[in-house]
Simulated assay, not measured.
Amino acid sequence: MYKFLIFSLLCLFSFTFVYSHEAHKEIEKNESIQEIIPTQDQPTTIQFGGRPQSWTQWIGSFHFIFLHFPIALIAMTAISEFLFAWYNRPIFDYAARFMLVSAAILAIPTALLGLIYSYTATYTGLLAEFVWWHMWAGISTAIFAIIVAFMRERYGTTKLYYTCLILLFLLVNITGFLGGGMTFGPYHMHPPL
Rank of each mutant, 00 (worst) to 15 (best):
Y187H: 11
G125K: 07
Q47V: 05
L171E: 03
T122P: 03
I46Y: 09
I166W: 11
P70L: 04
E28R: 13
A85G: 06
H190P: 06
F82Q: 08
M99L: 06
A137S: 05
D93C: 13
A145C: 09
E26N: 15
H188R: 05
F82R: 06
P90C: 15
E26K: 10
L5P: 03
S20M: 14
M151E: 13
G180S: 07
D41W: 01
A75G: 11
I79C: 05
A23Y: 08
S14N: 15
F7D: 15
F98S: 04
R89S: 14
I139M: 04
F98R: 02
H134V: 03
I108H: 00
E35T: 15
T175E: 06
I37T: 15
T39P: 04
G185N: 04
W136D: 15
T44W: 11
G125M: 04
M189V: 09
E31K: 14
L73D: 04
T175C: 06
P38V: 08
I108W: 00
F144K: 03
F62L: 06
I108S: 00
F130N: 07
D93R: 09
P70I: 02
Q53Y: 13
E81I: 07
S102W: 00
H63R: 03
T158W: 11
L106M: 07
L5G: 09
F130M: 09
I36K: 12
S80V: 03
I74G: 00
I166Q: 02
Q47R: 06
P191L: 01
L127P: 00
P38H: 06
A121D: 10
S118D: 01
R152S: 02
M189W: 09
I143K: 00
N173V: 09
A128E: 12
Y119D: 09
A111C: 07
A96C: 06
H63N: 03
L178F: 13
F169L: 13
G181W: 00
K25Y: 08
I36T: 13
F130R: 08
S61C: 11
V148W: 04
S118P: 02
K3Q: 15
L193W: 07
F177E: 07
S61E: 12
R89I: 12
H188P: 08
G180I: 07
Q40D: 05
S20W: 15
Q40K: 07
A85R: 10
S14M: 15
T124R: 05
Y119P: 02
A145V: 07
I174G: 01
M1T: 04
I46A: 08
R152W: 09
W132C: 14
I33Q: 12
S8N: 08
E28T: 13
A128W: 10
L165A: 08
A95C: 08
I59T: 11
F84N: 02
L171Y: 11
P43H: 12
N173R: 14
G156L: 10
H188E: 14
I174S: 06
T124W: 09
I46T: 10
I71Y: 06
W136M: 12
H63Q: 02
V172Y: 00
H188F: 12
I71K: 01
L106R: 03
Y94I: 10
G176V: 01
G49I: 02
